[in-house]
Every structure is written in C-alpha cells, then in structure tokens.
C-alpha cells in the first residue's frame, strides 16, 4: 500500500490519498492521471489493467486501487 501511495503522490501530490474516496467522482484524477497510474502499476506490481477495469469503483480511492491490484495479481 505504501508503494501505491508513493506512485499516486508522484503523479499528483496535491491529494489526501489516505482519506479521499471520490478521486473519480469529483474529477480529481483525470484520464491522463488514470493512465499514468495504470502504467506505474504495471511497472511496480506487474499487473495488466484493461479498459474494462477502468471504472469509478476501482479508482475512487487508494484502497479501491489496492484491492484491484491484489485481485489482478491473484
């Protein structure tokens, strides 16, 4: 999870990732940021995120992202 937070902060440092649960709903992460995250997730965790995985449910919070990474690793 720390690694994930570090990735998110590198892409956009002005967000409280520990508490925010509306990263997509409030437009905090735009499509450029989402794809940058996907690229870093692949490099760091070896997971392939597909277009079908890009949903608000998977990207609205750091926890949701982490759950997706674990699901894709499994």
């Amino acid at each position: 999870m720390e690694k994930l937070i570090a990735i998110l902060e590198d892409i956009n440092p002005d967000v409280d990732y520990a508490n925010c649960t509306t990263l997509i709903d409030d437009g905090i992460l735009d499509s450029f940021a989402i794809l940058s995250i996907v690229s870093e997730l692949h490099d760091e965790f070896g997971v392939y995120v597909t277009p079908v995985d890009i949903t608000p449910d998977n990207f609205n919070s750091a926890q949701a992202l982490w759950d997706m990474v674990q699901r894709l690793q499994g």
Partner: peptide, 23 residues
C-alpha cells in the same frame, strides 16, 4: 471516445511497447 477509443488504445500492446521505450 474516452471509453471506446482512448483507454483501449492507450492500454494496447503497441502503446505498452512504446511506453517502455519512451521511459
């Protein structure tokens, strides 16, 4: 465009290779 072109194109294998080389 975002859901049916931009994401699929950005996440395609071809773009994956380009991303690796660009990094």
């Amino acid at each position: 465009m975002k859901d049916y072109v931009f994401y699929p194109l950005s996440l395609s294998k071809m773009m994956g290779r380009f991303s690796k080389a660009a990094k």
